[in-house]
Write a protein that binds this DNA or RNA. Structure first.
Length: 237
DNA sequence: ACTCTGCGTCAAGACGGC
DNA sequence: CTAATTGACGCAGAGT
DNA sequence: GCCGTCC
């Protein structure tokens, strides 16, 4: 599909503290299936897939460490999604979806359950933009589409945004949705991921620790205000 | 001067340990 | 009756 | 840096 919006590439540092929406199917199609296709499926002791949990956990951690606050957008995986040809062969079971929601709850990451809620978030400027497919941009009401998200904690400097003039959906009423990012619930995470899904506890705790450190950074930055630094110190090659 | 942005091109999991 | 889509990266031109 | 593991 041809891009009809205006593309801009920005440094990830510019997004520090920014709140963004992420289409859950977009995220899943990006990390989970590419991995599963390689026959390296991750499963628990009963053979149930766990790739989605590991990927969402790692991806969310990566975003937080890069200073970005995600809110995941859930919705019926219907026509909207299936028009996107690259992903339409993938159906995600409701079991997996519910597991992801449970994971996000324990992680303290907010999510919404419909496209219209996403539209409200955008309209009220609660979130800056949305990471989703271009086909979904209009119905989400997103003028800014985000690409190249730093899902990994490593070596990523640029992020792309695509600006559109046109959106087709609206929230009529002046609703407002408040988003909260909480501390991860370590106990439940361990119970869920380690006891039920056989994650390695040591690795999990390391991850949780990094998430907590990221949240502290947010708080400090909020207190002191954030100014862009014109200085760059990552030019070590 | 340096940084930011736009565009064309190419490759395709991420991470950690040895 | 055709791969398609997305992100990484490098480079050149614009902006400050 | 390559190569096996992640669950």
């Amino acid at each position: 599909m041809k891009t009809v919006g205006v593309t801009k590439i920005k440094n990830i540092k510019n997004y520090f503290g920014e709140k963004i929406g992420i289409d859950i199917y977009y995220a899943l199609s990006k990390f989970v299936y590419t991995l599963d296709e390689k026959e390296t499926k991750l499963t628990d002791n009963d053979g149930n897939p766990t790739t989605h949990l590991k990927r969402i956990f790692d991806g969310t951690k990566g975003l937080l460490m890069n200073g970005i606050k995600p809110v995941y957008i859930f919705y019926e995986q219907s026509k909207v999604f299936s028009t996107c040809s690259a992903y339409n062969s993938q159906i995600i079971s409701s079991v997996e979806i519910n597991e992801i929601k449970r994971l996000l709850t324990y992680l303290g990451i907010p999510f919404v359950n419909s496209i219209s809620e996403c539209t409200i978030l955008l309209k009220t400027k609660e979130i800056y933009g949305v990471a989703t497919s271009e086909e979904n941009q209009k119905s989400f009401g997103a003028k800014i589409l985000l690409r190249d998200l730093p899902f990994q904690e490593k070596t990523k400097t640029l992020m792309t945004e695509v600006h559109f003039n046109e959106v087709s959906s609206f929230a009529d009423k002046d609703q407002k949705i408040e988003l909260k990012w909480r501390q991860p619930d370590e106990e439940n995470l361990i119970k869920f991921l380690c006891n039920e899904k056989q994650f390695n506890e040591e690795n999990l705790c390391k991850g949780i620790k990094k998430i907590k450190e990221s949240l502290i950074k947010f708080r400090q930055t909020t207190l002191h205000q954030y100014f862009k630094k014109g200085k760059k110190q990552q030019m070590k090659k």
